[in-house]
Amino acid sequence: MYLFNHKSNLRILEREVRKLKVARDNVEGKVEVARNNAEKIEETVEELVMKVNYIVPKSETLIEERANVRCFNLKAHYKRSRKAPKKVKDVGSS
């Protein structure tokens, strides 16, 4: 299953990472406004931003590896495709 769906798994991951980055940017903008207004930032918000800042680069690395692998390297396709749904789950839980 992973081998046959490697392209779609990575496309799904790309889409979810884009959504997460937009959400992160929105939250960071609101946090900046709140800080400028001397408002207290909830600890959970700061933890969420830290978690997103950890997940996004890891996911982007997995996506970028696709360009560096030859099309007939089935083992690499399988490994990346297997990791992609796990990363999507991480992204979704953020």
Rank of each mutant, 00 (worst) to 15 (best):
N9I: 07
N9K: 15
N9L: 11
L10D: 05
L10Y: 09
L10I: 13
R11E: 14
I12N: 07
L13T: 04
E14C: 06
E14A: 12
E14K: 11
E14I: 03
E14W: 02
R15G: 13
E16Y: 07
E16M: 06
V17Y: 00
V17L: 03
V17P: 00
V17W: 00
V17D: 00
R18I: 09
R18P: 08
K19M: 14
K19I: 14
K19V: 13
K19F: 12
K19T: 15
K19E: 15
K19Y: 08
L20D: 02
L20S: 01
K21C: 04
K21P: 00
K21D: 09
V22L: 15
V22Q: 14
V22T: 15
A23Q: 13
R24Y: 00
N26M: 07
N26H: 07
N26Y: 03
V27R: 10
K30M: 12
K30I: 01
K30N: 13
K30L: 09
V31L: 05
E32Q: 13
V33G: 04
V33E: 12
A34S: 10
A34C: 01
A34D: 04
R35I: 12
R35Q: 14
R35S: 12
N36A: 14
N36V: 12
N37G: 07
N37I: 00
N37F: 08
A38W: 03
A38I: 01
E39I: 07
K40F: 09
K40L: 10
K40G: 05
K40V: 10
I41D: 07
E42F: 08
E42W: 06
E42L: 13
E43M: 11
E43V: 11
E43F: 11
T44S: 08
T44G: 02
T44A: 08
T44Y: 03
V45D: 03
E46V: 03
E47Y: 03
E47S: 09
E47Q: 09
L48K: 06
L48F: 02
V49M: 04
V49I: 13
M50L: 04
K51P: 00
K51C: 03
V52C: 02
V52S: 07
V52F: 01
V52M: 08
V52W: 05
N53S: 04
N53L: 06
Y54S: 11
Y54P: 01
Y54V: 13
Y54A: 14
I55D: 04
I55G: 05
I55V: 15
P57R: 02
P57D: 12
P57V: 05
P57C: 05
K58Y: 03
K58I: 06
K58F: 04
E60C: 01
E60T: 02
E60M: 08
T61H: 14
L62S: 05
I63C: 01
I63Y: 01
E64T: 09
E64K: 15
E64V: 07
E64I: 03
E64M: 12
E65D: 12
E65P: 08
E65R: 13
E65N: 14
E65T: 11
R66H: 04
R66F: 02
A67W: 00
A67N: 07
N68R: 10
V69H: 12
V69I: 15
V69F: 13
R70T: 11
C71L: 15
F72C: 04
N73P: 03
L74A: 01
L74Y: 03
K75N: 11
K75M: 10
K75Q: 10
K75V: 10
A76G: 11
A76L: 08
H77D: 06
H77C: 11
